[in-house]
């Protein structure tokens, strides 16, 4: 009995190792063949998603259907098709041509960095708090039942 259990355990261990290997292989295949945007239209969409529509509220150029956004989309399409600039260069160009703060992802400089730093800080604090809580719990001695606790249980057990 003990021996078969151990053998089963070993078999499972091999199974887990095999599983890990398969996962790594599959992920590698998937990551290696990822070449980003497949067509210039997809790349233009990716850029458009990062730019705010200048006249509407909180929509990206990609989402918005108004004329201003359509003009910006056309400008992006043109630059992307020309294929000489990187995404960031295209965005700076759009910002200079259409004016204003149009980038939808806050930059990681100045006060805008707060919006990135605070969630990271919150994660660290939350994990630390969780770890501390578990430590406090495991450090606490188990309370022994008092006489009145035992009476309570006894009374409850007698209750039909």
């Amino acid at each position: 009995m003990e021996r078969t259990r151990r053998a089963a355990g070993r078999g499972r261990l091999i199974g887990w190792a095999l599983l890990g290997a398969v996962v790594v292989a599959l992920l590698t295949v998937g990551i290696v063949r990822d070449r980003g945007a497949e067509s210039s239209q997809d790349r233009a969409d990716d850029v458009a998603r990062r730019i705010a529509c200048p006249v509407c509220d909180g929509e990206s150029v990609f989402e918005s259907r108004n004329n201003a956004s359509e003009a910006i989309r056309a400008a992006i399409d043109e630059r992307v098709t020309a294929g000489r600039q990187s995404d960031d260069q295209i965005i700076s160009y759009i910002e200079s041509r259409f004016g204003g703060q149009l980038l939808l992802v806050p930059r990681a400089t100045g006060i805008d960095a707060v919006v990135w730093a605070v969630p990271a800080g919150a994660l660290v604090v939350a994990l630390a708090a969780l770890a501390l809580t578990f430590r406090r719990w495991s450090a606490q001695p188990r309370a022994a039942p008092t006489e009145s606790d035992r009476d309570l249980v006894a009374a409850a057990m007698d209750d039909p």
Partner: peptide
């Protein structure tokens, strides 16, 4: 409130 300028935090964030 702090810098008196407009920012937009959008979907990519």
């Amino acid at each position: 409130a702090l810098q008196d300028r407009q920012t937009i935090v959008g979907a990519p964030y």
